[in-house]
Design a binder for these strands. Structure first.
Lengths: 368, 368
DNA sequence: AGTTCGTGATATAACGTTTCAAGTCATGTG
DNA sequence: CACATGACTTGAAACGTTATATCACGAACT
């Protein structure tokens, strides 16, 4: 059954040439005479010869693969990044080994080892917090590293990331422009870089509009999921209508959907009473009961750019300079934050009757 | 910068032993004397030696990796499968090369080639339709193949799948038990094996309950997404209330969410007027406006089992027999199909007032 | 005819590891 | 004291490929 794979040598024997010639047919077909070439190719086909990549790599010193280490393969953010990486890699005829660190230092470390052993061209990684020393060692040994969705503190490597501060600013500037004056930020834990950045962006937007940082009503959540959003939503709904924020910026879409559901439950109309903006623009955002405005990150591009930087560093002419690429997110406006002036056509039917009942207090009171 | 990686030879020189001894420290540490071993290990550490996996593989004949080829990395079904595969693989100290065929024959073919060139231990694949011959060739050349979420027609390889017929039967049996008599199936295209199987399961449930196949109201959709669900929902909502099905089984959760939204839009209460059951139990099912009942597939287990079969075939003692493993899905009952008898506590607040208006016709008329 | 090219094909030496037969050397035995 | 016995260690031969230097040979020149 498990017949030993055919080697270049057997192909050579069948074609009646030396094994060097077969190698040439494989790698430099133009230098071998036409009749010989076809004869060799026929032999390859007949025997079902498949190159042994290990032997090839051993000779070449490095493999034709790159490693991608993400925190969670199940997260759509990373799957989109992975596709971007894969696109760029396959253009350069490189294969991608996708590794899932699960945000665990031990798993990350194990995978870095595996990737180094495979002599990958380079490693793209969203590192687990505090794994800098480990990465520096990998790099020192000669494997290029590019950080994905995190920035290098030392500038000792390339990185690609998205400007989360700008994302937060876009979201809140949009809410302010729509006339909202009492604005809340829902998200947490605030120790997460992304969450903190988005909050800072929200504050920046407020300050640019003449408000103070203290005017942002912050509802910190323990996590970034729907349940946490529901809890935050309940907290907000419990506020007296006169104090309640009229615009909510959530640190991600799952939170936003939780908040949205809780608003519906408490008969607070979205967007009439409260406008909501999420973050990430997940597939479901557009398909939610009230289509969700959201800050979209160029995830695919992020992966592609990261791979390109890596390829430039690994295969380039040695003139490579480390770069920190920062992408700009953009805001996708949907019904959840549609300004009252231009209500979407379907609204009268789409709105729950609850919205009609509570729908009187449209114009949000100015709040400082 | 890109210093050449240190080899076993340099380690040997530093430790003052032969390179064979270093290899033994690496692979059979128990046979080398304690002082020598520690000396070698110190040298390894000092030089930052990393095994060259290519050289190792070249010697060993096969690599320590397995390939996983999926139709779509962004699909949560496959990401969960991938995690299962990864779990089982890492237990066997194997790395996983994850490839995304994007349902394209050419990409699949290219990746199979790459995996064969890497001399992977074996390949786990959800094949693109009609790629059987290609796979057979791979197998003939000695690389074990295990089919994931599809069954082997020839029984020439192992396969793992989930019983979609049973899933459909569970869903519809549940609706029947809750007293529904007019039942619809929403899904398509019916040429997809999974969709057809789920429909057949629905029919089986009906027949077992004494109905005919023709009693199933089939709404075929062009795709399995939210938009298609909304369209199907609109079609159903347009039916006169007396003819309208009271129980809907959707071929996946996205469709179900679309249907759910459309019901809300038309003020048809879920589950009071119409019960909905989806398929896949995606993350969002539990978090939907009305938490969605759904048929859950053991996705993680599917991947794990597939990897285990492959490992058994590739590394086993040669007594391997091909097996077709079929998992059983199970039904997760949530509010979207809660029987009227035991309404959840929150319902009175959660239901839209529309539900009250149309809520009179609870008891569905028997239909055949 | 002898020389020089040029075109193709060949033989050979790596690449870094693992394995295995063969070697060394102290220790205990007859 | 010679010798067998272990316990380690060593050296050399693979594994399959690619690159490089070499070689054969006919054509085109002196």
């Amino acid at each position: 059954m498990a017949n030993t794979p055919v080697s270049i040598r057997e192909v050579a024997a069948l074609a009646g040439v030396s094994l060097g010639t077969v190698s040439n047919v494989l790698n430099h077909p133009e230098i071998v005479a036409e009749p010989t070439r076809t004869r060799v190719q026929a032999a390859i086909k007949q025997l079902g010869f498949i190159r042994n990549e290990s032997a090839r790599q051993l000779r070449a010193g490095r493999s034709r693969t790159i490693g991608l280490v993400v925190l969670d393969v199940a997260n759509p953010f990373f799957t989109d990044v992975a596709r971007g990486v894969e696109d760029a890699a396959s253009e350069a005829r490189l294969a991608v080994i996708l590794c899932n660190s699960d945000d665990q230092k031990a798993k990350e470390s194990r995978y870095l080892e595996v990737l180094e052993e495979h002599r990958v061209q380079g490693i793209l990684i969203t590192p687990v917090a505090g794994a800098d020393a480990r990465l520096a060692r990998v790099q020192r040994r000669g494997t290029p590293v590019v950080l994905v969705d995190s920035r290098s503190p030392t500038r000792g490597q390339c990185s690609v990331s998205v400007d989360d501060v700008l994302g937060g600013e876009l979201a809140v500037a949009h809410l302010l422009e729509a006339g909202h004056r009492r604005i809340a930020f829902v998200g947490g834990p605030l120790s997460t870089r992304q969450v903190a950045d988005r909050r800072d962006g929200a504050i920046r937007a407020l300050e640019r509009a003449g408000f103070n940082a203290g005017d942002l009503h912050i509802v910190e959540t323990p996590a970034l999921n729907v349940t946490a959003g529901q809890q935050a939503g309940a907290t907000i709904a419990a506020l007296p209508a006169t104090d309640r924020p009229t615009g909510i910026f959530c640190a991600n879409d799952l939170l936003a959907l939780g908040v949205l559901q809780e608003m519906t439950l408490h008969r607070i109309a979205v967007p009439e009473d409260i406008a909501i903006v999420g973050y990430d623009d997940v597939d479901f955002a557009a398909a939610a009961a009230v289509p969700l405005s959201s800050v979209r990150q160029p995830r695919h591009q992020l992966g592609r750019a990261a791979a390109q930087l890596l390829i430039e560093e690994a295969l380039g002419d040695g003139t490579h300079r480390h770069r920190q690429v920062v992408f700009e997110p953009d805001l996708v406006i949907r019904r959840s934050s549609a300004s009252q002036a231009r209500r979407p056509r379907r609204a009268p039917r789409a709105r729950t009757p609850a919205a009609e009942e509570a729908g009187g207090s449209h114009a949000p009171a100015a709040a400082g």
